[in-house]
Design a protein around this nucleic acid. Structure first.
Length: 315
DNA sequence: CACCAGGCAGCCG
DNA sequence: CGGCTGCATGGT
C-alpha cells in the first residue's frame, strides 16, 4: 500500500473510490438500523460498514446514495445489488393494505428498504440473534469479525475493520473458541452451520432457486435454525418477498392489531399475514418491526406489552 | 433481583 | 398440533 503525504502519524491512507447510486426516497438510516444487518455504524456523520471485502462509507441524500470504498477494484454491481437502489419503494408501500398500524409505520419510516445481503453472513448473524437485543447481536458479530475475519483497509481516521469470517474459517474453530466471543449456547449452532456449509451438505447458492417452502425446509435442518431465522435469511439474503419472519415483536403486533380479543395459533397468524400483506409481506413485516421497536415510545410499547384493551379493528 | 431479549430444541399431553 | 422449560449473556 502506498504511503501518502499526510499527517506524520498516518502511515497509510487508503484511496477512496466513489460512485453514486441514484434512488428516490432512500431512507438510509432506518434501512441500516432496522435489525436486518448488524455491521453499520455512524462515524463522523457517515455510515460505515462492510459488504463482503469492501469497507464502505455511505452518505444518503435526496437523490440516492454516495458510496465510497477503499477496495482497490470495487465490485460496483455487487454493491448496487446490496443496497437495492433500483427498487421502487413507494410502489411497494403503496401496495400495502390501508390499515392504521401499517400506514403509521409507513409514514414514520418512509423510504425504509430491504437489503440483499450475503447468505452466509446473514445466516450466521441470525443464528446468533436468538434472545439477544440488536445491540448485543452487533457486539457479538463485531467480535467474530475482529477475531476471525480478514483486516480491510479503512479510510484515514476510521477504526479498524474486518470482513465477516467465511463458513470455512468458522468450521476450523472450536466450540470453546466461539464461546470465548460470548455467544453462549449459540456457539455449537454456528460451528455446525459453518461445517455443513463448508462440506457442501448445505449449498447456499441453490437455496435461491427453490420455492420458499423447500428453502425453509433445508434451512431448518440446521440446529438452531427454526422458521423465524430461516425466514430472516430468505428475506434479507435472497430477497424472497413472501418470507415473513415472526419474532416476539411481530407476534405481539399481529395479535394486538389484527386479532384483538382472540388467541390465534401460529398457523393462523402465518396464513393471515401471507394473505393480508400480499404481495409484499416481507416489506410490511420490516416496516412494522422497525416502527414498533424504535419509532414509538410510550403508547404502543405499553399497549403491546400488557395484554391491551381491544384496539379498533382495521378493515 | 426479576425479567426480558429479532428462538429453538426437547419433552410432555 | 400446543404448551412448557432450559439455554448464556447482558441490560433495565
Amino acid at each position: 500500500m502506498q504511503r501518502k503525504s499526510s499527517p506524520s502519524f498516518v502511515l497509510t491512507e487508503s484511496v477512496l473510490r466513489r460512485r453514486r447510486f441514484a434512488a428516490a426516497h432512500y431512507n438510509l438510516e432506518d434501512t441500516l438500523t432496522s435489525g436486518q444487518t448488524f455491521r453499520w455504524r455512524n462515524i463522523h456523520g457517515h455510515w460505515t460498514g462492510v459488504v463482503r471485502d469492501h469497507w464502505l462509507q455511505i452518505t444518503g441524500d435526496s437523490g440516492g446514495l454516495a458510496v465510497a470504498t477503499t477496495h482497490p477494484a470495487p465490485n460496483w454491481p455487487l454493491l448496487k445489488r446490496y443496497f437495492q437502489t433500483e427498487v421502487d419503494i413507494d410502489r411497494i408501500t403503496g401496495s400495502f393494505p390501508p390499515d392504521p398500524p401499517l400506514q403509521r409505520a409507513v409514514a414514520a419510516c418512509r423510504g425504509l428498504r430491504l437489503l440483499r445481503q450475503d447468505p452466509w453472513e446473514c445466516l450466521a448473524s441470525f443464528l446468533l440473534s436468538s434472545t439477544k437485543r440488536i445491540t448485543q447481536i452487533s457486539q457479538i458479530v463485531e467480535r467474530l469479525c475482529r477475531h476471525y475475519g480478514t483486516p480491510l483497509p479503512v479510510h484515514a481516521g476510521y477504526p479498524p475493520s474486518w470482513s465477516f469470517p467465511s463458513a470455512a474459517t468458522i468450521a476450523e474453530r472450536s466450540e470453546t473458541q466461539l464461546r470465548e466471543l460470548k455467544m453462549g449456547y449459540r456457539a455449537p449452532w454456528l460451528l455446525a452451520a459453518g461445517r455443513t456449509v463448508t462440506n457442501g451438505l448445505l449449498d447456499l447458492e441453490s437455496l435461491g432457486r427453490m420455492t420458499v417452502a423447500d428453502a425453509e425446509r433445508r434451512l431448518i435442518q440446521l440446529p438452531g435454525v427454526g422458521p423465524k431465522i430461516a425466514h430472516c435469511v430468505l428475506l434479507f439474503a435472497y430477497g424472497e418477498p413472501n418470507a415473513f419472519p415472526v419474532d416476539v415483536w411481530i407476534n405481539r403486533a399481529l395479535k394486538t392489531f389484527y386479532f384483538p380479543g382472540s388467541n390465534p395459533s401460529p398457523a393462523e397468524l402465518k396464513s393471515f399475514a401471507a394473505r393480508h400483506f400480499a404481495p409484499y409481506p416481507g416489506y410490511a413485516q420490516q416496516y412494522l418491526f422497525h416502527y414498533l421497536r424504535v419509532k414509538t415510545s410510550a403508547e404502543t410499547e405499553t399497549a403491546a406489552r400488557s395484554n391491551p384493551p381491544p384496539t379498533p379493528r382495521p378493515r
